[in-house]
């Protein structure tokens, strides 16, 4: 089974190296506002959450895309954007319950697992973002994480 990104938010320190290297990988420049991974920071509560795509099995973004611009990579299991097919409608963005696809500058941007060697993982010094077999992520921890992503996404839309 393909590896996935495994998140342990309690290990995050907010250095945001993940955002920096993700944007460089995706955009060719250091531009965190265009990063696929975003670190949500509540300084007062000292809560830090690296927000990444978990490549849902039943991916609503993929199902709802009217132009079939989102496809599953058979090797990495990532849902990836086919840029030529994307018509900037942003339906995927509103379909995603976790707020981890964003349409900016006319293109849907989401994590493609860097083709199987995620750059964010290479640069994460604390292990807050790991690339591992799905079985290594305890179900309860995974659900806590996805629930938090969903609530952050709802807060952002409210």
């Amino acid at each position: 089974m393909a590896n996935m990104l495994l998140i342990e938010p309690e290990k995050c320190t907010t250095c945001r190296l993940c955002e920096l290297v993700c944007s460089e990988r995706g955009e060719g420049i250091f531009r965190p506002s265009r990063s696929r991974v975003r670190v949500w920071i509540d300084a007062e509560a000292a809560e830090y959450v690296p927000m990444v795509c978990i490549q849902c099995d039943d991916a609503p973004c993929m199902e709802e895309c009217p132009t079939e611009a989102l496809v599953r990579d058979p090797v990495t299991n990532a849902v990836v954007v086919v840029a030529e097919k994307c018509d900037e409608c942003a339906i995927c963005e509103s379909a995603c319950p976790y707020g981890v696809i964003r349409c900016l500058d006319g293109l849907a941007r989401k994590c493609d697992l860097c083709g199987g060697d995620p750059e964010c993982v290479r640069f994460c010094a604390t292990g807050a973002i790991q690339y591992a077999e799905p079985g290594r992520w305890p179900r309860a921890a995974r659900e806590t994480y996805t629930d938090r992503l969903r609530s952050l996404c709802e807060e952002a839309q409210a």
Binding site: E10, T13, T14, C15, R16, A46, T126
Partner: peptide
């Protein structure tokens, strides 16, 4: 200590919340 906090691009994280 509540938890460490880093500046941007810092894998060290000496900051203390």
């Amino acid at each position: 200590l509540v938890r460490p906090r880093a500046c941007v691009a810092c894998p060290i994280a000496c900051g203390r919340v």
